[in-house]
Computed example of a mutant assay.
Amino acid sequence: MNSMKLTVMAASTLLLAQTANAETLRLLTWGGYAPQEVIDQFQKETGIDVKVTKSNNEDMISKLRATRGAGFDLVQPSQDRITGAQRDFNIYQPIDLSKIDTSLLIPSMLEATKNNTGLEGAVYGVPHIWGTSGLVVDTKSASGIKDYTDLCNDAYKGKVSYRLKRPTLIGFAFAMGEDPFAAYSDPAKYQAILDKVQAKLIECKPNVKAYWSGGDELLNLVRSGEVVGAMAWDAGGWKVNRDNADITFVAPESGALGWIDTFAIPRKSKAVDAAYKWINFVNQPEIAAKITESAGNFTASKGADNFVNDTAKAQFQSSFPQADIDNIKWYPTVPAGLEEMEGLVLDRVKAAN
């Protein structure tokens, strides 16, 4: 065998050995949260492979519960779905915040996630992708709509829309000076808040063109001009804004209602160091912007909005000055029994004349 063949064989053997020994990060996440170009760049810089499995909150909990926290190295549950699952099934390990470059993160989002994923002195989540519901407003014909309860002003009779769902109850409560999240642990106090909101929503019924149930239904009502103000999500408002500059998402004065999908590390993760490397990698502003372009939602990476496309950048910065970001009301875990209370109120609102 000549020396050339020996050299080729040796090189091939070395490559196979390196591939076999390459570390793999098993990521359980949502669609769009780990675009291929980001995976490729991470692998190039770290030598770590990333195996992605797409999932949702219920599926993540189910998979980790079945394996008692094994099978994946990093997962992305919503922040309000962590402490209950951890308390019941012990599927996560505490986050070591000393391994997170927190300087990359929007401080208010980091603090909210620490609070909402904290359990028995430990933190189990780090913020990543987020979004909000608030107001979608035709600013030309309904400039007076600044908060949820403004939808009930006489000037907009028959021209507003919202869902008969929890976000409407929560949003109206905050706009009426209450703190429903603080009352979650006191059912009697929470019921008193719901009663107050119920009266307001019944009073507001003449203003409602339709209680929307599907996103396309609402956006069509807004585009046609039949609805000039609505409770809806930020991405929906920005979508209409691309067609009509007068219509956009507005963060309510009492605070937009926010959700955050986090990073959490399963209890039996086999690649913990790789998990922390991925978290810090994707929170770099330029990388985070690529994820925003893929997922359609912004991340908790500070300054990442400066690296997205010009349209998204302008929309985000117009809708969310820093004060409005810091005023977002982040959904906490919902205690048992509250959904039934809310359901009864929504039924009464719907049935009222």
Rank of each mutant, 00 (worst) to 15 (best):
24 T>H: 12
195 D>S: 15
230 A>C: 07
121 G>A: 12
294 S>L: 08
305 D>K: 01
31 G>C: 00
287 I>E: 00
222 V>T: 05
147 D>W: 11
281 F>E: 04
90 N>E: 12
152 C>H: 06
83 T>E: 06
306 N>H: 13
94 P>L: 08
116 N>K: 15
8 V>D: 05
134 G>F: 12
168 T>H: 03
210 A>K: 15
177 G>L: 05
239 K>F: 06
206 P>T: 08
338 L>R: 14
305 D>R: 05
200 K>G: 00
353 N>T: 12
31 G>Y: 08
329 K>R: 15
120 E>Q: 15
219 L>Q: 06
346 L>C: 04
83 T>V: 15
1 M>C: 08
82 I>E: 05
126 V>C: 06
24 T>F: 10
92 Y>L: 12
316 F>P: 01
221 L>H: 12
57 N>D: 15
240 V>A: 03
38 V>P: 04
132 T>C: 14
227 V>P: 02
112 A>W: 04
3 S>W: 06
124 Y>T: 11
75 V>S: 07
298 F>I: 12
318 S>A: 15
168 T>D: 02
18 Q>L: 15
32 G>K: 04
218 L>Y: 03
213 S>M: 11
206 P>S: 11
203 E>N: 07
59 D>H: 11
132 T>F: 09
265 I>A: 07
139 T>A: 09
163 R>D: 02
115 N>L: 13
54 K>Q: 14
183 A>Y: 02
88 D>Y: 08
